[in-house]
Design a protein around this nucleic acid. Structure first.
Lengths: 336, 336
DNA sequence: TTGAAAGCGCTAACAC
DNA sequence: GTGTTAGCGCTTTCAA
């Protein structure tokens, strides 16, 4: 038989007091006499008593658990995000339930469902690339569950946000390429339904404008994974002859591009300079080391958890959603 | 005011039936008439009814949640493990709570605590490098919570295990180095309290024996992170003059070593060949591409979740702990 | 200073 | 075919 964990009433029975007395003693309620409290606490400790989080949650309607949804844990940016969230949450007495949408809309909807079923107190979400319909998020907010959008967000949903200054980051990176002498810069872009996709493109575009360079449609490609890059390989190699710089929306794509170019004999950065976005650890492992825009994943995670918990614990403080923008600075290495 | 989620009794009240009828109707209990069931289901759907997982868990003493503890999500191997676990768990109707110990013993103990508080049905654990005392795991088993050790395990705790054939993998990798002509192979090892650390060393050793090469103590170093490698840099460069091969316990260390050697002008693999362990994605990004032992993280994750759920749902089937060993095959690339 | 009772949402044994 | 009741573990009025 399964030896069920010690409960408050087990302790009460054993000590000949009532469950309420035990409950109060354990949380240092002033009404309980020094003596009883001592007895109870000692016995609880001895029995290895631990409060049942399920019962606590059911009773208090607060689970002290935050739900997190990210596209994929394997990506360094998202795992640092999670570390930040976890560290802050734990320090404030919260637990975290993590889900991956695997960039799949259906799965994201299921994730939300599961987290709500578990009565998480709030949600931290970086939604999937596929997500175009945001009604599942609207439902969350209608149910008054506080939610923070991380990194990726959309205008339709008015909620707290923690984002990188994608526009600025992209602009700085592109400017850097231009300053190095690039005139024809290929932009490997994310889908334009993603805010980060648009912003990074706009930053790129703005840099061109400020330097009086033309925007060439043919030099803006939707290509944000190594797989897509491989699929576009032939086309890219044709373009390569005409370009002298590449700005990619993330480091994996930047590096795949760099390696494709290297294989075909293009020198980097002398013939074509390459810049990425995200400062993934692989940026320093590849040769030449990748020049890229730094994103503060860990800090963003912490900040988002802080905002969420703030809303949970002091709902009155601030009512209108706020957006926290993290600056993006350029890390200049060898590739550009 | 917070609009509380629809409960079974909300539905019962609205429809003028009893809660038990609603409960039964929703789970297609045969006693309930077609008509009532229809009415109830329709209304529940309309109200967006969702069962409260906390109440369910409290009532049934089963949370349908698995607890997972890994050292660090950022490592590719562990995030693939998690993906495997999640996919299988979701397909069987289980949720997953993920914790990171950050290779910290204290935190691991807290993680276990938190997961038990949440009444997870079972545990999947890859414990931290620091962990030398296993009493927290013993407590888990004494409480009859099924647990599976993943990747890392210890002999003291008799429980299900899912591991890589570290010995074989290390032996094959070392043999490969020897076949290429290496005679003096440096082994960058993990701590020997970790089973994987010992096994990989033993595999290395066995390969030396089988090829009648001497084991040189000076060529076995405890060095399993880039940080440690940097700290040992000077010593390593002295050794480098005398060696012709390196077998590192993981890919990050292998690559850091490779880059250190390259910076100092050692040609790879012609002057010194390098092999790693794990087949991290960076292995194909670095130049020369890293020869390394493949580890099936995703499959191991799936298998471990399968074993755990099996024990939860059919506790009678098998009583003695079993160990599932995944073969480790060598992925030969350019570095060796 | 302590206890009794009710209720968070749900289900199952036992009525009827 | 449906309702009543009790209880999972906990806290919190209210009463003593």
């Amino acid at each position: 038989m399964k030896p069920h964990p010690t409960s408050i009433s087990d302790i009460a029975r054993a000590l000949g007091v009532s469950p309420s007395t035990v409950s109060r003693a354990l949380k240092d309620h002033p009404d309980i006499s020094e003596a009883t409290r001592g007895r109870i606490k000692a016995f609880a400790k001895e029995m290895n008593y631990r409060p049942n989080a399920l019962a606590l949650g059911l009773r208090s309607q607060r689970s002290y658990t935050l739900g997190v949804i990210v596209p994929e844990i394997v990506h360094h940016f998202f795992s640092t995000l999670i570390s930040g969230i976890e560290d802050l949450a734990y320090s404030k007495g919260y637990r975290v339930m993590i889900c991956q949408s695997t960039e799949d809309y259906q799965r994201e909807v299921l994730n939300i469902q599961a987290l709500l079923d578990h009565r998480v107190d709030g949600l931290l979400v970086a939604f999937s690339k596929q997500t175009l319909d945001f009604s599942h998020f609207k439902t969350v907010l209608e149910n008054q569950i506080p939610m923070v959008f991380l990194d990726r967000f959309c205008k339709e949903i008015e909620t707290d946000r923690v984002v990188t200054d994608d526009f600025q980051g992209a602009k700085v990176a592109t400017n850097h390429l231009i300053k190095r002498g690039c005139r024809k810069i290929l932009h490997l872009a994310a889908p334009q339904n993603l805010h980060i996709g648009r912003e990074r493109f706009e930053g790129y575009h703005q840099a061109l404008i400020e330097n009086e360079l033309p925007l060439d449609d043919r030099l803006v490609l939707h290509c944000d994974t190594s797989a897509k890059l491989r699929a576009l390989q032939d086309h890219l190699l044709v373009l390569a002859k005409d370009i002298d710089g590449v700005f990619a929306v993330n480091d994996f794509t930047a590096i795949s591009m760099m390696q494709l170019l290297q294989e075909k004999g293009f020198e980097i950065p002398s013939r074509i300079a390459v810049a990425g976005f995200g400062d993934d650890p692989i940026a320093t492992i590849v040769r030449p080391q990748l020049t890229t825009v730094q994103q503060k994943g860990y800090e963003m995670g912490k900040e988002s958890a802080r905002m969420l918990i703030q809303r949970l614990e002091k709902p009155e403080t601030q009512t209108t959603p706020s957006t926290r923008v993290f600056p993006a600075s350029l890390k200049i290495r060898e590739s550009a």
